[in-house]
Design a protein around this nucleic acid. Sequence first.
DNA 1: ATGCCTTTGTGAACGCGTGCACAAAGATGG
DNA 2: CCATCTTTGTGCACGCGTTCACAAAGGCAT
Lengths: 225, 225
Amino acid sequence: MPTVSSEELAAAAGVNSAKLRKDFSYLGSYGTRGVGYDVEYLVYQISRELGLTQDWPVVIVGIGNLGAALANYGGFASRGFRVAALIDADPAMAGKPVAGLPVRHTDELESIITDNDVSIGVIATPAGAAQQVCDRLVAAGVTSILNFAPTVLSVPEGVDVRKVDLSIELQILAFHEQRKAGEETSPAQETAAATAPPRSGAGVRAGAAGGRKGPDGDVPAVMPA
Amino acid sequence: MPTVSSEELAAAAGVNSAKLRKDFSYLGSYGTRGVGYDVEYLVYQISRELGLTQDWPVVIVGIGNLGAALANYGGFASRGFRVAALIDADPAMAGKPVAGLPVRHTDELESIITDNDVSIGVIATPAGAAQQVCDRLVAAGVTSILNFAPTVLSVPEGVDVRKVDLSIELQILAFHEQRKAGEETSPAQETAAATAPPRSGAGVRAGAAGGRKGPDGDVPAVMPA
DNA sequence: ATGCCTTTGTGAACGCGTGCACAAAGATGG
DNA sequence: CCATCTTTGTGCACGCGTTCACAAAGGCAT
């Protein structure tokens, strides 16, 4: 029986072995003292807990470059996701095959959701269309949304939204890059005063940031991780 | 002079106002007691600290659906990023315009990096090509990499890598979705035993997970946020 | 069967980040 | 010029998650 110790796993993942064991114990997965964890059993338990053993039908709305990229992405199937339908508002796209699936028109959105019992939707539309698409998805019964459009979506209680902002990742890299570059010179503070604008003038609109539910734990309020 | 109080900002962002003030104080941004923060000055200070005031040339390697989507993404320019070049290994792509830029062949990678003083690279290639592209980018002087390919890249000390795995986001949604569904029924534990495989059989290879530098703070070792 | 060795599971301590609460500071009005 | 009011900046305490450290447990050799 192939096994792994928490120590091996911890080293491979770069985390503390005690934390790993404690996490596993929360999952109810039991290892064998003096031996470790049965690999196959462990994989199964984690997969099940994460929902990987279930089949999750998803729809992708907005079949531009990004939508097509997502439709072609191979990683979904292996993680238990099945692309139930591709939906686009452009009538010219309708019927056109993308990644082996015919693109369906937005008119069919509601029936597609209902017929396939879809609870997860992916929004890859332009920013302007995102909220409207979101509302329709939710109304049709979708309770989890992955949003690639650069907008904050407001959703009713009980619906989960995760926003993927491709430029935020780049910003975080640029932030660290700047740090690297700044280390051998002055502590940034100095150069600031030199180029800072006078503290006056017409401003940016403050406040008014859509109905988010609360802190999402990904990005601290001000500083990137 | 338009101003905002920490209280307003905190309410809009859904965070605690004290935390916000403390964060600002770390940045050295000074507000005015009894008034608040000068909006324009604050925006400028945060932008500067985050590196938004600098011009960051980036290259995108791998111009498939995803690469094209990134090239067309409008959010980059406004955050201080400039797409210096699009690079693809397919000779048939060379010269073809994508998002207004001619695609360059991989042969030119090194000279492009050097000539444009690029320090940030985006990898949108298939998994198989990613590590090789990564090595070439690093050798040419790139010190920050945004990786969309489903592989763990190993890089030398001093190079930052951020991995964007599109299916992980979906997995997190599915995880919460499962929780929602499971609440009104049994506590998962029960159903497990019924369908669990016997604790034996040929296993999955353990250990061996490339040279990551350390915990990255994004996703806990076991449980999604 | 007994003792030793390995690794788990977890109680307890430590450290860090968050939030509270308040003094200091500045604006504003009389 | 003084009193009052608002809002910042921050010391302090609380709580949570991580890590340490060790007893319990199981395997394995003799």
